[in-house]
Design a protein around this nucleic acid. Structure first.
Lengths: 162, 162
DNA sequence: TTGTTTGCAAACCTTTTGCACGTTA
DNA sequence: TAACGTGCAAAAGGTTTGCAAACAA
């Protein structure tokens, strides 16, 4: 089993994030810190509600949604977090790892599971295409839609594996 | 200058759409018909509000937003329209041409312009990747972000060319 | 006639904002 | 103590839904 990010990368992100936050003259409040700590443990994206639920399940006070959104907004501005829009009604957020760790997402139509995807050939093709355009591309998102391995393997109702 | 779809393709889509609507036992009401007629003339995606504005500018009664959303919903279910989410707060919709006409989008960070993009090498790479996944992919979206040719060429405020 | 379509207004849901209070450096 | 951060409640903005009237077949 491999994950998209290694434990070392996640730890490095947490350190980098703390540093960037301090460097921006921001303070260590409870809510933002909790969001950073949670994101540091993630491999892929979470919605604001999922973040809140996870923090509610953990010991300590549960931050309000407004604080979570404000924290995510700040982190996104500091380029510590990527806002990911997978086509549903909610936005998702994931740690932005400085070097590499460029991944995309596949979304299951049945169960809603989000799976991170990496592929060098696709990245190369995207960059080659971008170079030929008059449009100046500085980022790209790819979203795959279909059925995850579990849901594709059954004709029954979708699994709840999230 | 070339367009992503030809006039013949657009006409074929209009015919196909009318047929599919009748085939589904639906009737020809004014609002839905107006949406179909407008989409038949589009090369790329429009938001519900843009559709309403375009219909308001045209002669005749302007359909309510609810009717526009309901029409788009019906057309999407009939696979006549693709719902496109480019990462903003609004959804966009474009005609789904039966054969080919598979394009993606580039969004300008300055002026918001949406540019259709086509690239066979990228499509091939995506399909090859999809074949290797355990995830069963049946659709994919690619969104490029950056600066359009006009906005990239100036240091001044963004152009309004939409 | 009969079921479909439409328009208006109200409801919904996610996200943002105003404001007073609590906290950090 | 002077900003910054947080929580609550209200506001915003796009989309959906309930309902009664208008309409197509």
């Amino acid at each position: 089993m491999h994950s998209v990010t290694t434990a070392a990368e996640r730890a490095a992100w947490a350190r980098h994030a703390d540093e960037a936050i301090r460097g921006a003259g921001l303070r260590a409040g409870g809510a933002r810190q909790a969001v950073v700590d949670l994101l540091a443990r993630q491999d892929c994206c979470l919605s604001a509600q999922e973040i809140r639920d996870a923090l509610a399940a953990a010991p300590g006070a549960t931050p309000g949604m407004a604080s979570i959104y404000r924290a995510l907004d700040t982190l996104t501005e500091l380029h510590l977090v990527h806002k990911v829009d997978l086509g549903g009604t909610v936005a998702r957020f994931e740690p932005a790892h400085p070097g590499g760790d460029h991944h995309h997402h596949a979304v299951c139509r049945d169960c809603g599971a989000v799976v991170p995807i990496e592929d060098d050939a696709v990245e190369r093709a995207i960059h080659e295409m971008a170079d030929r355009l008059s449009f100046q591309v500085d980022a790209h998102d790819i979203t795959l839609h279909g059925h995850c391995a579990r849901c594709a393997g059954t004709t029954r109702s979708p699994h709840n594996h999230r």
